[in-house]
Amino acid sequence: MNIGKQFKDGLVSQNPVLVQLLGMCSTMAITTTLFNGIGMGISVLVILTCSNVVIAALRKVIPQKIRIAAYVVVIAGFVTMVDLLIQAFVPELSKSLGVFIPLIVVNCIILGRAEAFASKNTVPAAAIDGIAQGIGYTIVLVVICIIRELLGSGTFGAGIFGVNGGGIRIIAEGYPALFLILPFGGFLTLGCLIAFMQWTANRSADKARKESEAAK
């Protein structure tokens, strides 16, 4: 078991959103404030870790043919628990995320990790994979949220800091580019982030090639 490599995979080289391109719906839909992003990220992190652990523990019991259905039931159970907990303790979050909390059931990241990792590995490895991939997802959400909230509504951390949860105002009212809060902004921001990721990957590949040529 290689914890360092698993974390590096989850955060950078196999990042669920930017590299594996999973879980796009929630990534674009709810990333309008930092509050939403952190709430969604932590919910997915908890559900992913729990379902990874249960699926890894049951991997020898679940018959091959009905495995997808079994995974979906496990995931749906944890999603229901998290949904009810959020409704009880953080009702504002439940209101602003709305239908996207129950929709974590069909978030491809969770089913994808269950199929690709948890069904083939031991319980501790699956738990670490869940935490690493969940943190990778949360970081991407938070970055997109900060960009969209800052440029789109001119605030930072609405719902968390500031007077009446209004957030810290950084750009004066009337100046922010409102379209970044609209659906268009979600597509644009994520597109640019993935392009940035590809640019860095291309650049380091170029560098490595030049170095190997120079070594010859």
């Binding site: 994520l190 597109g191 993935i194 392009a195 940035f196 640019w199």
Partner: peptide, 23 residues
């Protein structure tokens, strides 16, 4: 296209433009 935008990124940006039209 610029190399970094090939594939997914440009698809997302053009989907965004369609979304803008639907606004």
């Amino acid at each position: 296209l610029p190399k970094a935008f090939e594939g997914f990124p440009i698809a997302l940006v053009s989907a965004g433009l369609i979304a803008l039209a639907f606004m």
